[in-house]
Design a protein around this nucleic acid. Structure first.
Length: 109
DNA sequence: CATCTGACCTAGT
DNA sequence: AACTAGGCCAGAT
């Protein structure tokens, strides 16, 4: 599998429930600070991979649910987040700063 | 085969 | 502060 995609999946799976991260932060953690756009592309394929990838915990840097349209109606991005305690309003995360989880800071071992 | 298009972001003007 | 341009690169047209 594409190593880039593999890294993206690994990082997204590491995001704790109730927290969120961003495309740019993931790209940065991988070592490609300008590759944010690719991260989004990889997440498109993430629906059919196993184990499942919690792609709903990834938003853009403004806290907007820019990928919400790609989720099925019965499991909307906002609903999945709400089930984990992340409050959204009008397609945007309330108190985004507090919910933000930065892979570079949190994932270091 | 050549463009166009994104679940984006930064840097320059 | 608003705006543009550029980088990223696989799929779709």
């Amino acid at each position: 599998m594409d190593p880039f995609a593999r890294d993206v999946f690994a990082i997204v799976r590491a995001v704790p429930a109730g927290r969120v991260t961003t495309y740019g932060a993931i790209a940065e953690a991988i070592g490609q600070p300008r590759g944010a756009r690719r991260v989004g592309w990889v997440l498109n394929k993430s629906f059919r991979v196993l184990p499942p990838v919690p792609a709903h915990r990834v938003v853009n840097r403004l806290g907007l649910l820019s990928g919400a349209v790609h989720f099925p109606e019965d499991h909307s991005m906002a609903a999945l987040l709400a089930a984990e305690g992340v409050v959204t309003e009008g397609g945007r995360i309330v108190d985004f700063e507090a919910a933000f989880w930065h892979p570079v800071n949190e994932l270091r071992e």
